[in-house]
Write a protein that binds this DNA or RNA. Structure first.
Lengths: 206, 206
DNA sequence: CTAATATACTTAACACTGTTAAGGAGATTC
DNA sequence: GAATCTCCTTAACAGTGTTAAGTATATTAG
């Protein structure tokens, strides 16, 4: 009686089709410039069909970002699980973070630079297995490794991690939104920020 | 024949009235949650009247941000023109920047965290007397003072300034958009970031 | 094999949005 | 007193996210 499974499979397929269409459009044109009707056109269904699979446009974006975070997590894991000097690993991880954001500017904007709808964050962002926190966890572990290796005299790994995150987020988001600013050189700024915060955290007194 | 001046004065008055109403609503509810009709209601004019004074909603926001930048500039000047250790001045300036952003989250978001409409930036952001660049100039001068005083061995004051800006922007924007993130302590993170980037820039090798 | 039900989708509509075109009172000028 | 100009409004357009109601089709029950 595989009929039920076939139906379920088809439902999942359509759901993914919607997700892919939305993702592609969000990436190309940005969340607020894509309408539900456009997404519907792309998959050749009526606009209201989307609401059978997603609560609203925000949830659609949320799911798209979820997938994006998963990719970021994988990306970071690949880097941070390599052997070698933990400080150098940290450096490479932070730089990879920035480039990942610059490669996916619309998703990055959606994930980190937009106000979170009410009653949204607590459930989705606090649960510890969300890809967002998972990515942050890689950073935290890497910082811990640095402290263990005596490469960083800082009492508080959590504070250090959050500080580092703020730093890389700063470059990433400014390079995304202020493309016309007379940056001395984009790559140079990225390296400068990463080096600066690593130096500051590892040699700092805080 | 003061009739012409009176009319001009009244036009400027209404323009400012629109600006104030828009600013207040933007601050309270955020740019995208405020409609032209709501602004019009507040000043008790028809919605289309606004278009006699501003090209579109984006220009309205731009002007509101312009005023906000002017206040930030004044704020920073007050701090950075005080005598004393330039490194300490820099520190106070950066912390003031962050708090200013946190005190005006919607304006800060509008000014730094939103994509710039096409054909907008070149004219408005590159002209050197814009309050935005003016504020950045204070930072640049302060960094220059630090280098002159031998407190910072870094060859490139421009790169150092941009690096510092990225850092403070990072904390500011993350604290604005991710209010529910389990921050170790908001004030502590601010201080940590500022101290970290200052330490990094002044002791760094880059 | 027919009748009832459940599934998956669509059409039509609502209440909004930013923005523009056309028109209308009231003051100013000739 | 007639024409013009200024400032503002009404009405409308084309779009938005979203919901309620309706319609075929497939599945199940009698």
């Amino acid at each position: 009686m595989g009929v039920k499974e076939r139906k379920l499979r088809q439902k999942r397929l359509l759901r993914q089709e919607i997700l892919d269409a939305a993702s592609e459009l969000f990436v190309k044109e940005g969340y607020e410039n894509v309408s539900m009707r456009r997404i519907a056109d792309k998959i050749e269904y009526s606009p209201t069909t989307i609401y059978l699979y997603f609560k609203d446009k925000a949830e659609l974006l949320e799911q798209v970002c979820y997938e994006m975070f998963s990719r970021l997590s994988q990306h970071l894991r690949a880097i941070l699980e390599q052997p070698g000097d933990p400080l150098e690993r940290l450096r490479r991880g932070l730089i990879a973070y920035v480039h990942f954001g610059l490669d996916n500017p619309h998703h990055y904007r959606a994930a980190f630079m937009m106000p979170i709808p009410d009653g949204f964050e607590k459930e989705k962002y606090i649960q510890p297995d969300s890809p967002g926190l998972q990515a942050f966890d890689f950073l935290r572990r890497c910082v811990f490794d640095c402290i263990s290796a005596g490469k960083m005299h800082c009492q508080d790994p959590e504070l250090a991690s959050q500080t580092l995150w703020c730093g890389v987020h700063g470059v990433t988001s400014l390079l995304i939104t202020r493309t016309m600013f007379p940056w001395v050189d984009r790559e140079q700024v990225i390296e400068s920020v990463v080096d600066t915060i690593i130096t500051g955290v590892s040699r700092g007194t805080a």
